[in-house]
């Protein structure tokens, strides 16, 4: 299988990539890891006239950790976050999400930003980064804008990106206490897209009170969803079973799945409830290792 013919530019700088996008219009597409775009081009679902390859641009590689938070460059790959032990202390959810994505070979090429730009409703990063309160930086030749991820994700395979824009960075605010996060995923086989994916992230103060909470859902709506009512129910309380059950029920209400061959609407909603409860319980246990596991 071959893609339809297209032109190819390996951008030597971000400005060059932006200039090409501005000149060529909507026929030009950014190529990052190519792990979503190339399969679609081989199936002729996508037929861009020109690919602008950014996957080796030094300006977009790596990440920076500051007092404000973490900034991921646009070509950070899934496998880099899977292995980034230095990020485990403040951003444990990242590594725990990365290991669920596709398989090791796809993770070696695919990028986090490409995943957000692709906006597959079953993609895992949308859910995880919503739970972390992330925002994205979008640049064109003439302007730079920063959007909360919640505003960037619009609909199925649709984002706020304009044809002349590149997603250049993902920003995650630094947690205001001790962070705990995990990702739960129901998949039909190893490396498959989520039937349901649930990201849970809580930040605790010294008294074990929840001061920040994020719950992101994958596969249960036209885009990755947040569960704001469930998050609000957790804040200001210790992470305990009554509150966990309430949050799980509220998160299930926030889900808006469709019935398909992977499961019915009611089944997927129920998986959300079970996963949120299971995930938050696991985080509660992790946050009190000295107490041990209590049922």
């Amino acid at each position: 299988m071959f893609p339809a013919p297209f032109g190819y530019v390996r951008a030597e700088s971000l400005d060059e990539a932006l200039a090409v996008l501005a000149r060529e219009g909507p026929g030009a597409k950014i190529l990052a890891g190519g792990q979503s775009l190339l399969p679609m081009m081989k199936l002729r679902i996508a037929e861009p006239a020109l690919l602008v390859d950014i996957h080796r641009l030094p300006a977009l590689t790596g990440w920076q950790e500051t007092a404000e938070g973490l900034t991921l460059g646009a070509v950070v790959r899934h496998s880099q976050l899977e292995r980034a032990e230095a990020l485990q202390e403040f951003y444990p959810l990242l590594g725990r999400t990365a290991r669920w994505i596709a398989d090791p070979l796809v993770r070696n090429r695919g990028t986090v930003a490409g995943s957000l730009a692709h906006a597959d409703p079953a993609g895992d990063w949308g859910a995880a980064l919503l739970a972390l309160g992330a925002s994205v930086t979008l640049r064109s030749l003439t302007r730079t804008r920063e959007l909360p991820l919640d505003a960037f994700l619009v609909d199925i395979f649709t984002t706020a990106l304009e044809p002349d824009e590149v997603l250049t960075a993902i920003r995650i605010p630094k947690p205001a206490g001790r962070p705990f996060g995990t990702y739960l995923k129901l998949e039909r086989k190893v490396g498959d897209f989520a039937v349901v994916g649930v990201a849970v992230n809580v930040v605790l103060d010294a008294r074990h009170t929840v001061v920040e909470a994020g719950i992101g859902l994958a596969g249960v709506g036209p885009r990755a969803l947040r569960a704001p009512a469930a998050e609000a129910a957790l804040i200001g309380h210790p992470l305990e079973s009554g509150g966990i059950r309430e949050a799980a029920a509220l998160a299930a209400e926030a889900a808006d799945p469709v019935s398909d061959r992977r499961g019915s609407r009611a089944y997927k909603r129920n998986v959300v409830r079970v996963f949120v409860e299971r995930g938050l319980k696991a985080l509660a246990d992790e946050s009190r290792p000295e107490v041990g596991v209590t049922a």
Binding site: Y8, R10, L31, G34, Q35, L38, P39, L51, D53, H55, P104, L105, V106, N108, R109
Partner: peptide, 13 residues
């Protein structure tokens, strides 16, 4: 030195 699926990488890459 990184394992990848060569059906999903362009030769020009």
């Amino acid at each position: 030195e990184v394992p990848v699926k060569s059906c999903t990488v362009l030769a020009v890459q």
